[in-house]
Amino acid sequence: MNETIGLYIDRDSPLHRLNPLTKVVFTICIVILGFISPWAWITFAIPVLILIPMSFWGQIGVPYLRALLKIVVPLALILLVMQSLFLPGETTWFRFWFLSVEYESVERSLTLVSRLVSMTASFILFLFSTHPSRLMTDLTRRGVSPIVTYLFISTIQLIPLMRTKANTIMDAQRARGLETEGNIVTRSKALMPMLAPLVFGSLVDVEERAIAIEARAFRVPGKRTHLTIVPDSQAQHLFRIALIVLTVVLIGVRLWLSLTS
């Protein structure tokens, strides 16, 4: 379970050792919190006050900050500028050239962007600290169908293999003189010779793999035993329940506030 896969960063930290379900529940609650928060600054405070300290607790603080700066901050800035300029509004705040910024559009944009920032930031923290195999192993033990697990894990294992295959094909076709740069017609023409070998090559393996997993009693009904059990604790169980209750209460408060005002 230690191969590098996707965004996961391998560390031996308390955050990594948490049961995956705890992190799933936590991530979902953070996302909901972003949507029910009445003020954008609360939503912006989530990544700064909760998620970044957590990433340092999980010994992935530096790569996490780097990911935020590379993925989240540029997106947030672009969206803020574009939405402030082009979302509709009434009260003009200031204008320059032919563009005008309205007070309402800035407010709306801050709400939208703060949600996206806290959602994406919590999601990245989850992906950085949770290995997909560990997540799926735990979910299968809790009753998720092994078929779902198979689809998940086998896709994740196939991606690097197919990427290698795609690069080999690209290099081979270039060596034969295929033009992959130039005007749009040339580039479109390059598409077929690259896609056809890749797609048909990978479809050939499908039938063989189907026979192989059927021969290993993949679809036999009945209860399975597990080779590895991802550890969970009573404390985490209580923590998850507390988080869910807290979120439900907050949703209630928010609904009550919006109904009475």
Binding site: I147, Y150, L151, S154, T155, L158, L203, V206, E207, R209, A210, I213, E214, F218, R219
Partner: peptide, 8 residues
């Protein structure tokens, strides 16, 4: 089974 193998 063929579908399950095709999906990934």
């Amino acid at each position: 089974t063929m579908t399950l193998v095709l999906i990934p």
